[in-house]
Simulated assay, not measured.
Amino acid sequence: MTDGTPATLRVEESADRVVVTLDRPERRNAIDQRMVDELHEVCAALERDPRLLILTGAGGVFASGADIAELRERTAADARRGINATVFTRIAELPLPVIAAIDGPALGGGAELAYAADFRIGTPRLRIGNPETGLGIIAAAGALWRLPRLIGEPLAKELTLAGRILTGEEALAVHLVTALYEPEELLAGAHALADRIATNDPLATQLTKSVLHAAPHEHPHAEQEAQAVLFESPEKKRRMTEFLERRRR
């Protein structure tokens, strides 16, 4: 970074994916303004050049939450700016899928970052939840509306009102994560999932994600318009021709 401050993210790029590692070990990967700014930079790059995104954390921690030292000094005006909520929504709306690979704590803002992903995988030592009310604030960066959609309102209330923290096994049981891996295998598991997604047509994947995120009143028009685009796509014709030729063999 140009001002001499250490970066909070490690970014590894390849042709079809980007791996972003939250890397503030001295603060257990707490999300501060610097990290928010760097996540915006990642989003800008992926909006220009759509690729899959894998989010993970360094040192056996996904993200311990938002940076409390910063939060303590924030004002009503800061709350209305939606500092974390804005970048998490931008991550959720990236053209291609986002995979959160979660080891250890994903709490508060760290959990909300994970909720913004399309897929969540974890390890048995994962701990995820929203203890914000214990600090005198609410989970205002997406948990209060994303989490009920992901796990249902009753359990979401346990996490956000009663401060329950889910273990890896509990998160798997309620489908908040879709798979558990040993810590040393977590990133390989994320790449295996990305490999499966990457075999599909990127445009069809982008439009599927877009329609999944469409508001209820936009259906079925959203599906019809997306399919109309794909029906004219050369990639659709190529893939279907290959399918038919394989079946003839």
Rank of each mutant, 00 (worst) to 15 (best):
R125A: 12
M240R: 12
L172F: 08
A114Q: 04
R149K: 12
E12V: 15
R247K: 15
L113D: 01
I102T: 03
P97C: 04
Y115N: 03
A179R: 08
H221G: 15
E112Y: 06
P6E: 10
L180E: 02
G163D: 09
T75E: 00
A44Q: 07
G163K: 14
G109K: 14
L176K: 11
W145G: 13
T86V: 02
A188E: 07
E182P: 07
E223Q: 12
Y115G: 04
A100F: 09
G152C: 07
T123R: 03
S14E: 11
P124E: 10
R24T: 07
P124A: 06
T8G: 12
R90N: 00
R72H: 11
G142V: 06
G134I: 10
V20Y: 05
S210T: 02
A106Q: 05
E245Q: 09
G168L: 11
A228Y: 10
A111K: 12
E232G: 11
G104H: 03
V211R: 00
V211D: 03
E41Q: 08
G109D: 15
R127D: 06
R164Y: 15
F119D: 05
M1Q: 13
I54S: 00
T241S: 06
T199K: 15
P6W: 03
L94N: 00
T86S: 11
L113W: 02
K157S: 14
A156F: 08
V36G: 06
L135D: 14
E245K: 08
A116G: 09
T205H: 05
G168Y: 12
Q206Y: 05
E70K: 09
A215D: 06
I165N: 10
V87F: 00
F243K: 11
I83A: 08
L244W: 10
R51W: 02
A30K: 14
G65E: 08
T178L: 09
S64G: 12
R125E: 11
V98I: 01
I102G: 01
P95Q: 01
G59N: 02
R74V: 01
S210C: 08
A44D: 08
L52I: 01
P50F: 01
A139I: 08
R196M: 13
I138R: 11
E235F: 00
A179C: 03
T241N: 06
A15Q: 11
A7M: 11
F62K: 00
D23I: 04
P202G: 02
E184L: 08
R72K: 13
L230K: 00
L172S: 03
D118G: 01
D49M: 01
A143M: 09
A139H: 11
L161Y: 14
A114R: 05
A198Q: 07
L230C: 01
E70V: 05
R28S: 13
A173T: 14
L176Q: 10
A63H: 00
Q227C: 07
E235G: 00
A143L: 03
D195Q: 10
T241R: 05
P202H: 05
K209D: 05
E132K: 05
A192W: 07
L55Q: 01
E153D: 14
L187P: 00
G134K: 09
L150D: 15
Y181G: 04
L207R: 05
P97M: 06
M1P: 13
T167L: 07
D37C: 01
L107I: 12
E73M: 14
V61E: 01
A143D: 07
V174A: 15
L159V: 13
D103S: 01
R24W: 06
K237H: 11
